[in-house]
Simulated assay, not measured.
Amino acid sequence: MKTRTIHWIFAVLALACIAALGQALLAQRTAAAFNQTLADPQPSDGVSPAAMLSRGVRLAAAGDVSAAQHAFQLALQQGDAASRRMARYNLGNLHLRQALAMRRGDVEAVPLVELAKQYYRQVLAEEPLHPDARYNLERALWLQPESVTWRSVKDKAEARERRVTASRIEPGELP
């Protein structure tokens, strides 16, 4: 092989490495800008639904329920199907946590549990195998059972057994 050919091969390889480095730097800059958007505590125009979901989760953990609900509603309006599903799931969690924080049997907790059940059912309508939404819907149904017309004595006995079994379950944290 001639020296000139070897020099050209190294030059092409060097250019390929420089192009790969440039692409990696651009991806890193984009990721840093997205992370900054997620960390920004103040909403602004043009914020992505993922940033609104992240902000809503952070606000809910801090105890700011109304701001978290607003962030989830924005993500619900602006997002794609997956973002809307996550916003519904998080809204259900928000309402269920509010209901669990109230005293058991409190009349004000009933609408919150019903809203949580509605959001979980919407998530399950889109993704029937969503395990966390299934579990949380079941917990909401334990808190606020729905009225059922019994078709037979056997159905009533099975429901009574389920109710007794469910009452033995220790309250746990939502997923």
Rank of each mutant, 00 (worst) to 15 (best):
S54W: 14
H95Q: 10
L137Y: 02
V153Y: 10
L26I: 12
T37S: 15
A67R: 09
R97M: 12
A140G: 08
A32R: 14
K154Y: 13
A109L: 01
R160I: 10
D155S: 09
L143E: 01
P111I: 00
E108D: 14
S44H: 15
Q77G: 12
L115C: 08
W142N: 10
K2I: 10
P49H: 03
G105W: 00
A159M: 09
L15T: 07
I9D: 03
P128C: 08
G92S: 04
L124N: 03
R139F: 04
G63E: 05
G105E: 00
L26E: 12
R168N: 09
Q36D: 15
R29G: 13
E138R: 14
K117V: 05
S83N: 14
R139N: 09
D40H: 07
H70Q: 15
M1F: 12
A133W: 00
R163Y: 12
Y89I: 05
T37G: 14
R58W: 06
E126V: 09
P49D: 06
N136R: 05
K156D: 04
K154V: 12
R58K: 14
W8S: 13
A71D: 13
L100K: 11
A16S: 09
L115W: 10
A31S: 13
R29D: 13
I9K: 05
L53H: 02
A101R: 12
R85S: 14
V57C: 07
E138K: 11
L129P: 05
E170S: 11
R58A: 15
E108L: 10
N93V: 05
G92R: 01
V113C: 02
S48Y: 06
A33L: 14
A60L: 02
R85L: 15
L129W: 08
L137C: 03
L38P: 05
A75C: 05
A101P: 02
Q98M: 08
E138G: 15
R84Y: 04
D106T: 00
W142L: 08
G46W: 04
D40R: 11
T37E: 15
P145C: 02
R160D: 15
R162Q: 11
A19D: 06
Q23T: 08
A101N: 13
K154P: 03
P175R: 14
S83I: 05
L174P: 03
L76M: 10
Q36Y: 08
R134W: 00
G56T: 02
Y119R: 12
P49W: 03
E161W: 07
R29C: 06
L25N: 12
P131E: 07
V148G: 04
W150R: 09
C17T: 15
Y135N: 10
Y119I: 02
I169W: 06
E146G: 10
G92Y: 00
A68D: 04
A75Y: 05
M52S: 08
R168V: 07
A71R: 01
G92E: 01
P131D: 06
D64R: 05
A19N: 07
Q144G: 01
L115P: 03
R84S: 05
Q78W: 07
A116I: 03
V123K: 00
L141M: 09
N93E: 04
M102D: 00
V65S: 10
M52C: 06
